[in-house]
């Protein structure tokens, strides 16, 4: 996973509430067996017309936002399915940060595991950042994870909170499975206890 420190880039406005995972990446693109390559189908139904050509009205098709690295969105972003294809598609497109008043639980966890920083901020602040994002090529924000700040186009600074565990995981790019494997002894001890207490759970499922 890419390490994360700061991102300076164009923020695209997506002022829609409840952006669901089917919207982020429709089910027919889940047939891939890889993590890469989903960026071209990010927001497919909005981004393309039924004949496959680009919909010029969709924000990510507008010249100023084609290389956006930041999304500013409405509340409950990422609701719906557990498909990690949603963050994979965002990441493959080049989105590194999503700012919204709130996020759905499973999507939240999935995003951090893929190097995407999700920042939840109060509605009024999101409204201001949404206004910033509407400035086209001037919609540049700097997101600094170390100092937990967003610098706006006018130079003013917004602080954000973040779970320390998630923050570290992003900054250090850690291998969570590797870390958990270091708990082998504790997991083994737990299993011995569990097997004695609930032996019926240890009958092979086959």
């Amino acid at each position: 996973m890419d390490k994360f420190t700061t991102v300076t880039g164009v923020a695209a406005p997506l002022p829609t509430i409840n952006v669901d995972t089917d919207m982020i990446i429709p089910a027919r693109f889940l047939k891939t067996i890889q993590r890469k390559g989903l960026g071209k189908n990010l927001f497919d139904a909005q981004r393309y017309k039924p004949d496959g050509t680009e919909n010029p009205d969709f924000v990510l098709n507008k010249p100023a936002y084609r290389k956006a690295q930041i999304l500013v969105a409405g509340p409950n972003f990422g609701c719906g399915s557990s498909r990690e294809h949603a963050p994979w598609a965002l990441q493959d497109f080049g989105i590194r940060v999503v700012i919204a008043p709130s996020f759905a639980d499973i999507f939240y966890g999935n995003s951090f595991k893929n190097g995407i920083l999700l920042i939840a901020l109060p509605q009024e602040i999101c409204d201001q950042l949404m206004d910033d994002a509407k400035k086209g090529a001037n919609a540049r924000l700097t997101v600094d994870l170390e100092t937990q700040t967003i610098t706006r186009p006018d130079g003013s600074v917004v602080k954000f909170d973040i779970d320390p565990f998630r923050r570290e995981a992003l900054i250090d790019g850690i291998d969570e499975i590797g870390l958990t494997e270091q708990k082998r002894v504790e997991i083994g001890a737990f299993e011995d206890k569990a097997r004695a207490a609930q032996p019926w759970l240890w009958v092979p499922a086959r």
Partner: peptide
């Protein structure tokens, strides 16, 4: 998510 599927499979 899939990363967690891998985590559970492994640990």
């Amino acid at each position: 998510g899939t990363s967690e599927v891998e985590h559970v499979l492994a640990t």
